[in-house]
Design a protein around this nucleic acid. Structure first.
Lengths: 126, 126
DNA sequence: GTCGATGCAAAAACTTTGCATATTC
DNA sequence: GAATATGCAAAGTTTTTGCATCGAC
């Protein structure tokens, strides 16, 4: 990571690296607190903003009042929100033909796909 | 609309119907205030929540701290966020192959695509 | 010892709620 | 006149900021 690695920042970065998909600030706090018990939410937000500016992580908007963050180094992928357990998973692969959807003279830089449904684990349970 | 149509609610509903894409609560307030000058933000939020519960509108998460809302009756479509003017446009059509991206045993209900780029108007200006 | 990072608490921003007044039928 | 909706202001939340202290070199 580009920012000075302290114990706190390592724990925050670690939490995001190990997760199967993007995490909310609170998820990050919960996970990183296991490593650094006195960690405060302000440090989580400050670190998120540093990592965003450094281009190391990106925001993934999931819902009203639900943004999650993930490392940028995972390659092109998309997301799956399980409506049962509320986990967001990374999904490899990509739909084709995205650029063809655009009206004339619209120029595409990037695209995000969010799939809603039920994950394998939750489907097995019910 | 399913809820009792008052002047305020009509103006709020109208603003969303006429827009080229989803609007933020503040967008809605600005537009509807032209019709009902003393409209308060609380009424906007209350109306948004009523319409959400009634299933007449849906939330479109765009960014960290940026949710917008749109009528549900527009048929299947996706969204385009212009990085210059920050407008979100509806995009007709849909990429194929979305379900094929899923890992085994994941079940898809719906999907959303958000394209980032520059809209025709902003591209013409620069 | 200097410099930057942290925690706590206060502030700002965003959203919801309470309540007295206003509006609709 | 009863019932519901509104505006304003207060209360909740979420995120950011200020500041004194702590920690790393």
């Amino acid at each position: 990571m580009a920012v000075h690695p302290t114990r706190q920042r390592k724990a925050i970065h670690q939490a995001m690296m190990l997760a199967p998909g993007p995490l909310s600030p609170n998820d990050i706090l919960s996970l990183a607190t296991q490593e650094v018990p006195k960690l405060g939410i302000a440090t989580v937000y400050r670190t998120i903003n540093l990592l965003l500016e450094a281009g190391d992580i990106q925001a993934v908007p999931i819902n009203a009042n639900d943004v999650r963050y993930e490392p940028c180094d995972r390659g092109h992928h998309h997301h799956f929100l399980c409506r049962v357990c509320n986990t967001v998973y990374d999904i490899k692969g990509c739909a084709g033909q995205i650029a063809k959807m655009l009206p004339a003279d619209f120029e595409m830089d990037e695209h995000e796909i969010l799939i809603h449904g039920t994950c394998a684990e939750c489907k097995a349970v019910d």
